[in-house]
Structures are given as C-alpha cells and as structure tokens.
Write a protein that binds this DNA or RNA. Structure first.
Lengths: 186, 186
DNA sequence: CTCGATAAGAGACGTATCGTCTCTAAGCCA
DNA sequence: TGGCTTAGAGACGATACGTCTCTTATCGAG
C-alpha cells in the first residue's frame, strides 16, 4: 500500500477541517501552521501555497465549516422577534469561535472585508422593509447607522466581553435601543 | 565619568517614553521588548521586572503619556455639544494610538479593565444628568445601555474601521441615534 | 565613611514559530 | 508511457520570547 496522495478539493477540505479542529482545541493564539499541517498529515508548504498566513487560513476554515453567514433572513411577522433572531444568530456564531479568536483575527487582518458589514446590514434592512410593509415602523428612510445599529452593538459586545454574550444583552439591544428608535415617528 | 545609573521613577519614565516612541515608530505589532530596552539603554530584565508582557508595558506607556482618560467632563450648556465633545475626545485618543495598536492590545489582553468602561459611562451619565436638569431630556431613568451607547458605537467604529474615525461618524452617532433616543418621551 | 543589599546594565541561552527552500516521488494528462 | 505538477517531508536562517547569569553602581543603615 503506497500512500494515497490527496489533491485539490479533497486535500483542501482535510486541511480546513484540521485547522478548525486546532482552533477548537488550542485557540487562535496557539494555532500554528506547523500543527495544522501535521494534523492534516501534509507539509507546511501545501498550506502556504493556498493561504498567505494564519489569518487567511482561519477565515477559510470558518467559511468551510459553516456556509455564508445569513442565507435565510428571518420572517416571523414580528419585528422584535425578527431582530432577536438575527442577533441570536450572530451570538451563536461568536460562541462557536470564541472571543479570543475573533480578537486575534482582528489584530492580524490588515483590512476587514467590507462585504461582511454590508451583508449584515442588508439582512436588517430586509427585516425592516417587511416591518414597514406591515406598518410596524413608519418609514424606510432610516439612516444607515440605525439599520446596522443592532449588529454593531452586538459586535461591540462580542469584542469587549469575554464570555458568550448573555441573552439579556440581546433583548436590551432590541428593547432599550433599537425598537424605541425605529418605532418612533420621525 | 563612570556611568550614571538610573533608578526608580526616573528609569521607569525613560522606559515608558521609549516604549511610546517605539509604538509611534514601528506600531504595536513590531514593538519588541528588546527594542524598547535598547532604546532606553537598559536590559530586558529591567522591563520584565516591572511588566509581565508587551501589553502591560504598552498600557503603562499609554497612561504615562497622557493622564487619566477624562478628568474634565464637558459642560457647554448644550447636550449635543457635550456629547460631541466627549466623542471627539475619544476619537482623538484613538488617533494617537492607531487602530492596529488598539486591536493588538485587545488580542493580547486576557481581560479588559472594567473600570475603563464604567469611567466612560459615568462621563456620559454626568452629561445627561445636567441635560436633565436643563430639561433637555425627560428622565434620568435611562437604561445603562442607552447611557453608554455613544461611546460603545464610537468604540465599535474605532475597532472596525481602519483610518481615524471621520467627523461625520461622530455627528451621525449623536444625531441619528443618541439624541433622538434620549430626547424621546418614554 | 564603610559595608551589605538591591537592582541596573549587558548579554548568553534554549525554545518556539515563522516563512522559505529543497528534494523525492505520486498522480494526472496528453 | 513520459512529463509536468505538486504533495509530503523536513532542513534552514531569522526573529523574539522569557529566563538566567554576572558584574558593578547606587542606596541606606550603622
């Protein structure tokens, strides 16, 4: 039995799984290219051929582990419920990664992908548009900052806090800040 | 002339100045204990005797460079102006440090000093209390989250953005989010 | 003024990881 | 079947960490 040598997509998937496992086991700070390569039973060069550095590898591993962030925008017929659903989704995602990983990535990445933000804002925009159609909010002329407000606050919470974001924070973002703001007649 | 050997506070100040200079020159990522020691013309051990790691040294250097964050709470007689003053103060502080340094610190610090947050929230609370006395806002029964909202959003902006926070962002935080929220009659 | 304790100044040291390079051989394609 | 690509494996020099060792300047007690 001479070794079956993996290639292309198969190899790539193995590496990304290995990276994800290392991430879960040791965390971002201690994740090394060497260990990922070892776990995937391949050489470092194979990693460097695909990703320029740790950060890119980890980003790729994240994407590989769970598809694009939000495909199904919630539509429960109630604005508050929709908002909380979006927030919970984000919070769960954070829990999977851990604060330390998120912070580490932020530090290593020279530039954050702007698509990441617009994506989340578009989700909220869709939720708000439907709420406007139902008459729950009075206008869709809301400033961009207001639209992205819930996710911005959640992100802030995820970055500053240590542990998983408590559920109370999510309801507070919705009830103390966002809903009073969008329900208000301008 | 046998060397004049520095001690105590004098030595410490020299080191912190060196750290601050290195920070400005090379940024947090490339700041090394070795270089700081070299610039201060001392040994690494002298640094490690005082600070456990890079992050602590840099924090100390920041504090040394510019005193406590806010001693003089603005009081212009106008809520909007006060809020913007606080925000500008924070933005200036960020500009001095640079986003990369802030992110690096966040990644390295296991735990953020909670005093940092309460401090900023207390500033906003003071500003709001005076506004309430003037009748600008209707109640001082505002949720904590609302009180810390402007600084939270600014912090989010500082962390996610690359360059110094544009002035328009500050006014947007005040005019699109904070003021409509606190002026509203509950 | 003298003596001992303390800590500065300087650098060696072992470890860890980086990112590059090199080499051999396996697997795909014509 | 022969050639081209690239996987698999590891050596390599560079950098920085954090610890340690050693000498000697400086401070404070007596």
């Amino acid at each position: 039995m001479t070794g079956t040598r993996r290639r292309g997509a198969e190899l790539e998937a193995t590496i990304l799984d290995a990276a994800w496992a290392e991430l879960a086991e040791t965390g971002y700070a201690r994740l090394t290219m060497e260990n990922v390569a070892a776990r995937a039973k391949t050489g470092k060069q194979v990693l460097y051929r695909r990703w320029a550095n740790r950060a890119e590898l980890v980003i790729a591993a994240m994407r590989h582990h769970s598809g694009s962030i939000v495909q199904d925008v919630p539509d429960t017929g109630d604005l508050r419920r929709d908002v909380l659903t979006v927030l919970r989704h984000g919070a769960r995602r954070q829990q999977e990664l851990g604060t330390a990983t998120i912070r580490g990535l932020m530090a290593d990445l020279p530039e954050l992908d702007p698509a990441f933000f617009t994506q989340m804002r578009d989700v909220m925009a869709a939720v708000l548009r439907r709420a406007a159609e139902r008459g729950e909010v009075d206008a869709d002329a809301l400033p961009d900052r207001v639209v992205s407000l819930p996710m911005d606050l959640l992100r802030h919470e995820m970055l500053m806090g240590r542990a998983p974001v408590p559920a109370g924070v999510l309801t507070s973002i919705a009830d103390d800040v966002f809903l009073p703001l969008v329900r208000r007649a301008t």
